[in-house]
Computed example of a mutant assay.
Amino acid sequence: MKMHRDILVIEDDEDDRDILKEIFRDLGYKNNILFFSDSIEALEYIKRPEIEPFIIISDINMPKLGGFELRNIILEEEVLADKDIPYIIISNAQDEYSVKEANKLSIQGFIHKGNDYNKYKEKIKNLIDYWKENINTFSSKK
């Protein structure tokens, strides 16, 4: 089932990746969690025909290719758009521009990282549990 496929996390900041690794370890999901520090590397991975991840969790502000730009590419390339991968933003940004841009790009979730580990872990848990429960409702692929 799609809900057991890989979770892709695109985060250029090493400290933020370490926090997310700890969160996913604490939560104990059976999914393979793949971390990318570079969104271009993640894009090349996603383009492989056999790759159909469960979900993409991406930071916004990254060198080379930001999270919004990556989402736009996924929406524009038919072969990628057809993979029906939920796209979630994680960021410290809470500005009006970021929220509007996320809405324009049909981002399926926007999580503020914040400074409280337990709240951040709870947000990630709620997000993953939501998509595990509802993935077949929103996706044509089962």
Score class of each variant (00 low, 15 high):
Asn32Asp: 15
Tyr29Val: 02
Leu65Cys: 07
Pro63Gln: 04
Glu50Arg: 06
Tyr45Asp: 00
Tyr45Ser: 01
Ser58Thr: 04
Phe35Tyr: 15
Asn31Leu: 13
Phe36Thr: 06
Gly66Val: 03
Gly66Glu: 07
Ser37His: 14
Ser58Glu: 05
Pro49Glu: 12
Gly66Ile: 09
Phe36Cys: 04
Ile51Met: 01
Phe35Thr: 05
Lys47Arg: 15
Ile46Met: 00
Lys30Asn: 15
Phe54Glu: 02
Tyr29Ala: 03
Gly28His: 12
Met62Glu: 06
Asn31Arg: 11
Lys47Gln: 03
Asp38Ala: 12
Gly66Trp: 06
Ile46Trp: 01
Phe35Leu: 08
Ile51Asp: 00
Tyr45Gly: 05
Leu43Pro: 06
Ile55Ser: 05
Ser39Gln: 10
Ile56Asp: 07
Ile51Ala: 02
Ile57His: 06
Ala42Thr: 00
Ile56Gly: 07
Pro63Val: 05
Phe36Lys: 07
Glu41Ser: 14
Asn31Trp: 01
Ile40Met: 14
Arg48Phe: 07
Ile51Asn: 03
Asn32Gly: 09
Leu65Pro: 04
Ser37Gln: 15
Ile51Cys: 00
Asn32Arg: 15
Asp38Val: 11
Glu50Gln: 13
Asn32Met: 12
Gly28Trp: 02
Asp38Thr: 12
Ile55Thr: 10
Gly28Ala: 04
Phe36Tyr: 10
Asn31Glu: 13
Glu50Cys: 03
Phe54Ser: 02
Leu34Lys: 14
Ile40Asn: 12
Asp59Val: 10
Leu43Trp: 04
Pro63His: 09
Tyr29Phe: 15
Ile57Cys: 02
Ile55Arg: 04
Glu41Met: 11
Ile46Pro: 00
Glu44Ala: 06
Phe54His: 04
Ser39His: 01
Ser39Cys: 05
Pro49Asn: 11
Leu43Ser: 05
Glu41His: 13
Ile33Ser: 06
Pro49Thr: 08
Leu65His: 10
Ser39Ile: 08
Glu41Asn: 14
Glu50Ser: 13
Asp59Trp: 00
